[in-house]
C-alpha cells in the first residue's frame, strides 16, 4: 500500500510537472504581451522593458519556468512584492500573490464538488439499488422513465428554477453562499445545500441506471447464486455479495466523471453567483492575468490527479484481487 502510494504520488508529480511545463510554455510564449496591456497609452520601449523586468519576463523561458517551479516550494522575492511559498507568482491585475487569491476561492469549488458528488453518489446509487431490489415494480419502471428525462437536465436551467421554487417561494432552503468553513461551518453547510443538490441532479440518472444494471448483472453472477444456495437471506446476498461486486465499476465510473464533477461545480458556481475557481478563471482570462490563469490551471490539475490516486487506491479495498504495485 505504502509502496503503491509513493509510486503513484511520484507518478502524479511527473504528470503535474508535464502539465505545468506545457501550460507555462503555452501561456508565456503567447503573442499577447501583458506588458503592453498594463503600459497604457504613452508606451515607450523603456517602459515596456521595465515592466518586462518587473514581471520577470526578460529572462529566457526555461529560466522563468525553473524559477516559477522553485517558487512553489520555496517562495520568491519579486520586484513587485514578496511572494511566500507556495508561490504561483503575483497576479498581474493587482500584484497580490496568486496563492492568496486561490486560497480564498478554491474552498467554494472544492466544497461544491465534494458535496455534490456525495449527494449524487448517495441519491443516484441509492435509487439504482432500490430499482434493482424492486426490479419490475412500479417504482422501477417510473424511475427508468424519469431517469431518461433526467439525462437532458441542465444546471443553468434547474438552478434558477430551484432558486425560484425552494428559496423564493417555499423558503425551504438558503440561497447559495460561499462557504466560510473556519468561521461559520453551519452557515457554510446551509449555503451549500441547494447548490450541491442542483449540481448533483445532472448525475443522478446516469448513476441510478448504471447501478441498477450493474446490480442486476451481479445478481446473476454464479458466486452470488452460491451465496443464495448457502441459504443466505435476500438482503445479505444483495448488499454483501451483489453490491460488493458492483462497487468497483461504480468507482471506475466516478473516476471517469471526476472532470465533469469539477466542470459541474464551476457551472453551478456561476449559476448561483458564487465566487470559486470558475469565476476566477474567467476573470483571469479576460484580464490576461497569466499567473492567475496558470495558478487556477495547476491547482485544478493537482486536485484531479490527486483524486485519481485516491480512487485507484480505493480499488484495493473493494477487490482483494487488485494488487497495488
Amino acid at each position: 500500500m505504502l509502496r503503491f502510494l509513493v509510486r503513484r504520488l511520484l507518478g502524479a508529480v511527473v504528470i503535474l510537472a508535464l502539465i505545468s511545463a506545457l501550460t507555462y510554455l503555452l501561456f508565456f510564449t503567447l503573442p499577447s504581451d501583458p506588458a503592453l496591456l498594463s503600459c497604457g497609452k504613452n508606451c515607450t520601449p523603456a517602459n515596456v522593458a521595465l515592466i518586462h523586468h518587473n514581471l520577470g519576463l526578460d529572462k529566457p523561458v526555461p529560466v522563468q519556468y525553473g524559477e516559477y517551479m522553485a517558487g512553489i516550494f520555496t517562495g520568491r522575492r519579486l520586484p513587485l512584492g514578496n511572494c511566500p511559498a507556495p508561490c504561483f507568482g503575483l497576479s498581474f491585475a493587482n500584484d497580490a500573490p496568486v496563492w492568496t487569491i486561490l486560497s480564498s476561492r478554491y474552498p467554494t469549488t472544492l466544497s461544491l464538488a465534494v458535496g455534490g458528488a456525495a449527494v449524487f453518489l448517495t441519491v443516484g446509487v441509492g435509487l439504482g439499488l432500490v430499482s434493482a431490489w424492486t426490479r419490475g415494480s412500479l417504482f422501477d419502471r417510473l424511475a427508468s422513465s424519469v431517469s431518461l428525462m433526467g439525462q437532458s437536465v441542465q444546471i443553468y436551467f434547474i438552478g434558477p428554477l430551484a432558486i425560484y421554487l425552494l428559496v423564493d417561494r417555499l423558503r425551504w432552503l438558503d440561497p447559495g453562499a460561499d462557504p466560510d468553513w473556519s468561521h461559520d461551518p453551519a452557515g457554510a453547510v446551509g449555503g451549500l445545500v441547494l447548490p450541491c443538490l442542483v449540481m448533483s441532479v445532472i448525475f443522478w440518472s446516469n448513476y441510478s441506471r448504471q447501478t441498477r444494471s450493474l446490480m442486476i448483472e451481479q445478481l446473476a453472477e454464479e458466486h452470488v447464486r452460491t451465496a443464495r444456495a448457502k441459504g443466505m437471506g435476500r438482503g445479505y446476498v444483495f448488499f454483501r455479495y451483489a453490491l460488493r461486486g458492483a462497487m468497483g465499476p461504480i468507482v471506475t465510473l466516478f473516476g471517469i466523471d471526476l472532470g465533469s464533477v469539477f466542470g459541474g461545480a464551476i457551472i453551478t458556481e456561476t449559476t448561483f453567483g458564487l465566487h470559486g475557481l470558475g469565476q476566477l478563471a474567467v476573470a483571469a482570462v479576460t484580464q490576461t492575468d497569466l499567473p492567475l490563469e496558470m495558478g487556477v490551471m495547476l491547482f485544478s490539475s493537482c486536485a484531479i490527479v490527486l483524486f485519481n490516486v485516491v480512487i485507484d487506491a480505493s480499488y484495493a479495498f473493494i477487490d482483494p484481487r487488485v494488487r497495488l504495485l
Binding site: E221, E222, H223, V224, R225, T226, A227, R228, A229, K230, G231, M232, Y241, R244, G245, I318, D319, P320, R321
Partner: peptide, 21 residues
C-alpha cells in the same frame, strides 16, 4: 433455512462459484 443446511449443492465451476471478495 433448508439451503446450505439440509440440502446443499456443489457447483460446477468453482472459479466463478466462489466470491472473489
Amino acid at each position: 433455512r433448508l439451503r446450505g443446511n439440509t440440502m446443499s449443492m456443489i457447483f460446477q465451476d468453482s472459479l466463478t462459484a466462489l466470491s472473489p471478495y
